[in-house]
Design a protein around this nucleic acid. Structure first.
Lengths: 207, 207
DNA sequence: TATTGTGAAAGAGTTCACAGCT
DNA sequence: AGCTGTGAACTCTTTCACAATA
């Protein structure tokens, strides 16, 4: 197809499609139409076709998509075709939940290091990982970890981000409810649980 | 101003503005310009002005916005001007993190009930809350709780949602990585941590 | 026949630029 | 002078409709 800038929104949906495709693969299916996948995920079929079309033509008219092949393509687009190692900073309640979260596996993520600045926590073993002192963040570059998850209190988020950037990290998933400033070369995605919850009442019919 | 449908994206940003306004209020400021607030939050000033303009004119040209007044307005728009009680379903690692999460307070949310179907957990007290058996969900209506947070394993998410809807819940924050089907009158916001993380590598420059 | 891939139209959201108010 | 509020322009995203293909 002709050149098109790829919409960010399309990128955001690819992990969703990937999740669906992997589920269907597990169920033993080998191919799927955009309609079937759409129904399975609760989205529109034309949206799926359009999104895939930005990256090329992966399907067979009259038949659908070969799931295994499509999974490979999507993983490649998202750069999930190699195991991505991530560091967790902050092993509080939220950090523990992240460590135990079963959902990262399907995208080939591995939390490969955990840091905290609380001496009582440093050295403890959780989920096959030994919690390291936050001062050891600088070792990330050497260990080939360029992705990090921030789960520290808000006050410590910016300095944590600064240390991560200095350690060569280029992607950050930030759970702290605050804006963090980083160089342009670093991508930050912030998840603010409370903000999402705060939208709900607006949409709830009065009662 | 003339009639405009209010963009969903504007609604999504209001909790962000509210967070900033409350911070500034805490710092002792009484008024703020859209530019100052924008810089504080890492967004654009015209976006802020436009978003507020959908709901009316809250500012004073040449001066800015009275923070206290604006906080009240935004809370009213988001229906956060009364304490919102939420129920938590699923007290695993993620559920525990939600219970301990300090960020809900600024939006006047209170997690007022916690449920699990694990007999070992039922009856335990956490954060001043006694974990109840999931079969007790039906009591929510009587207790005036119409908001819920789903933090159960994916397999149980849909049946949990069904039970919540039957119990009169009209807003759901879903942490399970799956689409859940509910009647139109119920609003669902899904947070899929792994999906957000899965977008990061795409945006990270190679290295 | 069934389904993909895509140009074109429609719709939604963002940015701009500035009139008008304090 | 400084800042808000907003129409208009622009950009981004979704939806449609259908030609092309297996």
């Amino acid at each position: 197809m002709r050149y098109h800038r790829i919409p960010d929104e399309s990128i955001r949906r690819l992990p969703l499609y990937l999740r669906g495709l992997l589920s269907l693969l597990e169920e033993g299916q080998q191919s799927v139409s955009s309609r079937n996948l759409a129904d399975f995920l609760g989205v529109n079929s034309w949206q799926i076709r359009k999104d895939f079309s930005y990256f090329g033509a992966f399907g067979t008219p009259g038949v659908g998509y070969n799931i295994e092949k499509l999974v490979k393509q999507v993983k490649k687009i998202l750069k999930l075709d190699v195991v991505q190692k991530a560091a967790l900073v902050g092993v509080g309640n939220l950090g523990l939940a992240v460590l135990a979260y079963p959902g990262f596996g399907i995208y080939d993520f591995r939390v490969a290091a955990a840091f905290d600045n609380d001496p009582k926590k440093v050295g403890r073993k959780i989920e096959n990982l030994t919690i390291e002192d936050a001062s050891k963040l600088r070792t990330l570059k050497r260990r080939g970890i360029s992705l990090a998850i921030i789960a520290v209190p808000r006050e410590a988020a910016q300095q944590t981000a600064d240390a991560l950037v200095k350690a060569g990290v280029r992607g950050i998933l930030n759970f702290s409810p605050c804006h963090i400033t980083v160089p342009k070369k670093v991508k930050v995605i912030t998840i603010d649980i409370a903000m999402d919850l705060a939208c709900l009442p607006y949409y709830m019919p009065a009662g």
